[in-house]
Design a binder for these strands. Structure first.
Length: 222
DNA sequence: GCGACAG
DNA sequence: ATCTTGTCGC
């Protein structure tokens, strides 16, 4: 693969990313969660999409897509590796969300195009990046209290929030994906967090993707 | 040159 | 991400 070409594609696409709020984002009726994983030693990419109703945070739909992996994992180019499976799962959705939480970064990326920003701008859906690790940028130490936050800064601009969602847990990296401001991104993630480190949409997507007991129980009870 | 490096 | 049991701490 030609990284120089992909890098150019990122710069071009990043210019189309909307970092401000959309009027129809408020209030969301359906919030989605996306999680991508790999199987068979990485040869198969598995994308899970779930739809929750807001504010009840009730699971209303789940979809899983498996496609042949086309690219290796290269820091900074993750979206190209996950995009095919995400698009496949997206097409299977019978109810598209008003807002989507994507595992990974949004604009908190070296060229401001993490997977959340890339997918969001591609299908033109409001997205928020929810990552568990830092990719770039710097931030001051967080207080131990849950709820504490610090701006994530890179090259002189704020590209996200580092937020401690739960006591004694490592913080989350929240950023704009597409059509959602940084402050709103943190607002919606807070509104969808229910006592666990990860917000509900992300937790459910993860549970569905890996066949967690919580999901299996939900599936049997209907 | 050295260290960092989403999932 | 994934391979995987027990184990330390609240």
């Amino acid at each position: 693969m030609d990284l120089a070409a992909l890098r150019q594609e990122q710069l071009q696409r990043a210019a189309d990313v909307v970092r401000q709020d959309d009027f129809d984002v408020l209030p969301p009726r359906f919030i989605g969660g996306a999680d991508v994983g790999f199987e068979q030693g990485g040869e198969v990419t598995r994308a899970a999409l779930v739809i929750l109703e807001y504010p009840s945070l009730t699971l209303v739909e789940h979809r899983i897509a498996r496609v042949a992996t086309t690219m290796p994992y290269i820091p900074g180019f993750l979206s190209f590796r996950e995009m095919p499976a995400l698009l496949e799962a997206w097409q299977q959705l019978s109810q598209q969300p008003d807002l989507l939480f994507v595992d990974g970064h949004g604009i908190s990326h070296p060229r401001r195009l993490g997977v959340a920003a890339h997918f969001g701008s591609l299908v033109d859906v409001p997205t928020i990046g929810v990552a568990k690790k830092r990719l770039c940028g710097r931030f001051a130490d967080l207080a131990a209290e849950p709820g504490s936050r610090q701006p994530l800064i890179d090259k002189g601009e704020q590209i996200g929030w580092v937020w401690r969602s739960k006591a004694r847990c490592n913080p989350l990296f929240i950023s704009t994906g597409h059509r959602v401001s940084l402050d709103s991104a943190l607002h919606w993630v807070e509104a969808c967090t229910a006592g666990y480190r990860l917000p509900e949409p992300t937790r459910w997507a993860d549970a569905v993707a890996s066949g967690r007991p919580a999901f299996l129980r939900w599936q049997n009870s209907r």
